[in-house]
Computed example of a mutant assay.
Amino acid sequence: MSELTAQITAAGEYIRKHWQDAPVAGIILGSGLGNLAQDIENRIEISYSDIPHFPVSTVEGHSGKLILGHMQGKPVVAMAGRFHFYEGFSMQQVTFPVRVMKALGIHTLFISNAAGGMNPAFNVGDLMVIRDHINLQPEHPLRGRNEDALGPRFPDMSEPYAKTLIEAAYKIAATNKISLHTGVYVGVQGPTFETRAEYKYMHIIGGDAVGMSTVPEVIVAAHAGLKVFAMSVITDIGIREEENVITHDEVLAAAKAAEPKLTLIFSELIRQL
């Protein structure tokens, strides 16, 4: 057994001591989007600091707890707070929870994030379903020796976001009169917000929104054979020429305002699993 698989096993065994159900879905909650966890019933909360080999989130708006319970009658495991490369973690640490959730039994991963908008059609508070991504992060979570037991050396990335879940999300949104965009998410390192020139560059190469997370987790999910659905809350618009000074507090406020719509879509998708 490799060091990584041993760490995954240790973390999984610790979690199973507290909760024996096998979750069907994992949820990663981004900046300002932690309240979805309140919809998880009969929940058990475990601090990241108590789980063997888990990193501990350092970012405001990320509470740092693993939440286990039921949503829409389905067993789920949710991360209230994620990890970022810019915090100083390795990519293996950033994506370690995805490995653990897979070992616990999930087959579908739901991801949310706060992102800057680059599509002129977007406004603050809009929701964007991610249909594809561009990876501009400087490190790759699969670099190094491949663990064949965890996935293939060269995983296919032609459909990292499940089309069936995207189609289902649009039906849910239409039924509930929620406006949705779809687009390409650009993953960058951070922690600085982007310059105006960088926003323009990333829009030119095909990006509709940009953020500092998600892409590493999606790569590892694809490596592990998980279905993925991901959604961005557009918390600022960087493509426009007018004065546009962005603060983390503004990002959190915009995410919180849009959260009920995102929660409804996630919840209904989980109900349909």
Rank of each mutant, 00 (worst) to 15 (best):
A10Y: 01
I237C: 00
K261C: 14
Y14T: 08
T214F: 04
E250A: 15
S63T: 15
L180N: 07
L4Q: 06
L36N: 12
M157H: 05
Q38I: 02
P191H: 15
I205E: 01
G238L: 13
A254R: 03
M91D: 02
V228Q: 02
M202L: 09
R131C: 03
E41F: 07
E243H: 13
P216Q: 00
G34T: 14
A80P: 11
G190F: 07
L29T: 12
I246S: 04
Q189T: 15
K102M: 03
W19L: 06
D208P: 12
G73C: 10
E268V: 15
A222V: 06
R196M: 00
P155R: 00
P155I: 07
P155S: 00
E13W: 02
R16N: 00
P141C: 05
F193I: 05
G64M: 00
L127E: 06
T175Q: 10
Q189I: 08
V251M: 01
V59D: 04
Q7I: 02
I205V: 03
G238Y: 13
A221K: 10
V251L: 10
P260H: 12
V210S: 01
R271C: 01
I111G: 02
A254W: 08
A11C: 00
E87N: 10
N176F: 04
A115V: 08
L262N: 11
Q7Y: 02
E241M: 08
V228N: 01
I51Q: 08
I265T: 13
L264V: 13
K74I: 14
P55G: 04
L104K: 10
D132W: 01
P97H: 12
V220G: 11
I111T: 08
Y201D: 11
A253L: 14
G30I: 14
A221D: 15
D21P: 14
L127D: 14
Y14A: 02
M231E: 02
H107Q: 11
P23Q: 13
P120Q: 01
G211W: 04
G116F: 10
A37D: 13
I239A: 10
M91H: 05
T182I: 15
F96D: 15
S63D: 07
H203D: 05
G144I: 11
P260S: 01
V251A: 09
N244Y: 01
E259V: 12
Y185N: 04
R99K: 10
R196G: 05
A169H: 06
P23H: 06
M101E: 12
E268T: 14
A257P: 13
P23I: 08
Q137E: 11
L262C: 10
H248L: 05
I130M: 12
D249K: 07
E243Y: 14
E194K: 03
N176K: 02
L150I: 12
Y170V: 07
D21C: 02
L252A: 04
N35G: 05
L269Q: 07
G211R: 08
Q38D: 13
G190M: 01
A253K: 15
L165R: 03
N146W: 09
R82K: 12
S63L: 04
L33A: 10
L33K: 11
F122Y: 09
A253T: 15
A197C: 06
L33N: 14
T164L: 15
K65V: 13
A115P: 13
K256T: 09
E3N: 11
I28H: 03
V210N: 00
E45M: 06
L109M: 07
M202R: 11
P155F: 08
L150K: 09
Q93S: 07
